[in-house]
């Protein structure tokens, strides 16, 4: 263990440079984030992740955001355990019939101002599971969606770009 700790002293940081916020996402968000919300949130967002029927692929990449190479928290973005502490719901999956109610309740438990980010192709319109009688077919069918991050699954860089865009618009920096 000492060896491991000592190495960290002589090694540079592993965390990589931040990607630029996704322009398309910034444009999509600019209109939705009010000045009032910006004032209240400053440059930090608490995120509650909700799996609404995903294959777990999207969760794996969302997880990766917290590894040392991406280190999501350095941007003021952090995952919280309860919707009551959250500004953002990060929702994955085609919304199964069996998860619909839990998703609605999670949204209801999240205090405003709040945003919903739909992650992955299934969260847009059911993706590969579209048309299944067991799926509602996309987060937008159940909640108002502010931003969609495409991909199956989106890789951590794509996720980071989308979330940074959200952060920038909530902090009023996309107007500059």
């Amino acid at each position: 263990m000492r060896r491991l700790l000592f190495k960290s002293l002589v090694q540079g940081p592993l965390t990589e440079a931040a990607p630029a916020a996704d322009d398309a996402a910034v444009a999509q968000l600019a209109a939705q984030v009010t000045a009032e919300a910006r004032k209240r949130l400053g440059r930090t967002l608490a995120i509650r992740e909700v799996d609404a029927g995903s294959c777990n692929g999207c969760e794996l990449e969302i997880h990766a955001l917290s590894n040392v190479l991406y280190d999501l928290e350095r941007f003021g973005l952090r995952f919280v355990a309860s919707p009551r502490h959250a500004d953002v719901l990060l929702v994955t999956g085609p919304v199964t019939a069996n998860m619909r109610q839990a998703l609605e309740r999670t949204y209801a438990a999240t205090p405003g101002p709040k945003w919903v980010v739909a992650v992955g192709d299934c969260a847009r319109n059911g993706g590969i599971f579209a048309g299944s009688p067991a799926c509602v077919g996309g987060v937008g069918k159940v909640l108002p969606v502010d931003l969609h991050i495409p991909g199956c699954p989106p890789d951590p860089t794509a996720l980071l770009k989308g979330l940074l865009a959200l952060l920038e618009s909530s902090a009023g920096r996309s107007q500059a």
């Binding site: 995903s54 999956g93 199964t96 069996n98 998860m99 599971f129 009688p133």
Partner: peptide, 11 residues
Amino acid sequence: LGYVHKGIESL
């Protein structure tokens, strides 16, 4: 369990 039942066999 069953919350993420997506109907894969029917698809």
